[in-house]
Nucleic acid binder design. Structure first.
Lengths: 180, 180
DNA sequence: ATGCCCCTATTCTATCATGGAATAGGTAAA
DNA sequence: TTTACCTATTCCATGATAGAATAGGGGCAT
């Protein structure tokens, strides 16, 4: 899995409450929710919903309405619940900078909304970032100067910034809990 | 332009020396060149070449060979040269973290190979990152806590890391020149 | 009332990106 | 001799993505 998909995050939102596409779109627009984290187009959300349903992670049923267009309400299947848990409790979350920003924050948001403790998520994220930082430090010691060196230096600097940022999150866990 | 395309970088490589697809693939594989910066598949390079030719930025001519498969050598057109210059001298390079890592380093690499002074490129990149940093600082002062706040805090921390890294690049400009 | 735009809710379409395999002849090692 | 890799490119199927299309209802200003 190398691309950054909103699949699990959407799974999480549906776990919080069964939703139809338009509701999810609004969650991704809402700046106090996921608005600053993901930028997603309308059709992408419906595409993800189709995929999740095809994979048997969610099921939809059509809600008829006379005053408004019909909508399809989706809720998690047992498989979907398991997939979501696997994601939330992933013991080795990616240390990629983008993924930390997007996936880790999404995990935090979803976990909070589901009343799942966020501290373990933070600790695991810190652990993988520390491992990756150490790996990069080693790598830099043996790498000859050049573009690759500069690139790795930058990634290392960013990982260190991530770790300082995570440390601040840890110091004030209450704040994380109180967010949202 | 929101996606991160290798188009201009490939334009740059062709400006350094006329090349065919396979040669470019090797430049992107070579760790001492762009290997650590871009990850690209074979077919993507040929797709980019097709696009650049369709846009009139490069022209290809087939080199026949009996000992090896035919190849198509590409070289820049006048328009292509102008497009490359616009990119190299872009007065407002993106301050997005990914783009700094990928685009800025590519600019640096191409400029060096073309014997164009790299210092102005570095200074312009620093300037836009500083502007963006200031914007984020302002934004954070007025933003209520929440996921958006955390997200912006992280981006700010990463921008600051980028700026420290750029400062190191500036302090030892000779090193940048000597790289590659 | 009339026209117009916005809101809800979703689908459609066309283009682009992507990875992976297919092709195909040559060469070097085992 | 088989195996496997190097050069060089194309093909294909799937997937992502943006943007428009659809469609009925409500509000607001002229």
């Amino acid at each position: 899995m190398s691309t950054l998909t909103p699949d699990e995050t959407i799974l999480g939102l549906i776990a919080i409450q069964t939703s139809h596409g338009y509701e999810l779109i609004e969650a991704f627009r809402d700046v106090s929710a996921l608005g600053e984290i993901w930028k997603m187009s309308t059709s992408q959300i419906y595409a993800v919903l189709k995929r999740l349903e095809r994979q048997g992670l969610i099921t939809g049923r059509i809600e008829e309405s006379e005053t408004a267009p019909n909508r399809t309400e989706y809720c998690l299947t047992a498989t979907g619940k398991r997939r979501l848990d696997d994601w939330l409790y992933d013991p080795q979350p990616s240390a990629s900078i983008r993924r930390v920003r997007v996936e880790f924050l999404s995990r935090l948001y979803i976990a909070r909304q589901l009343n799942i403790p966020t501290i373990p998520i933070v600790l695991r994220q810190r652990a993988t970032c520390e491992t990756e930082r150490d790996r990069l430090r080693d790598l830099l010691e043996h790498q000859p100067p050049g573009m690759g060196y500069l690139a790795h230096e930058l990634v290392l600097a960013q990982l260190e910034a991530v770790l300082r940022w995570i440390a601040r999150c840890e110091l004030v866990p209450k704040d994380i809990e109180d967010i949202t």
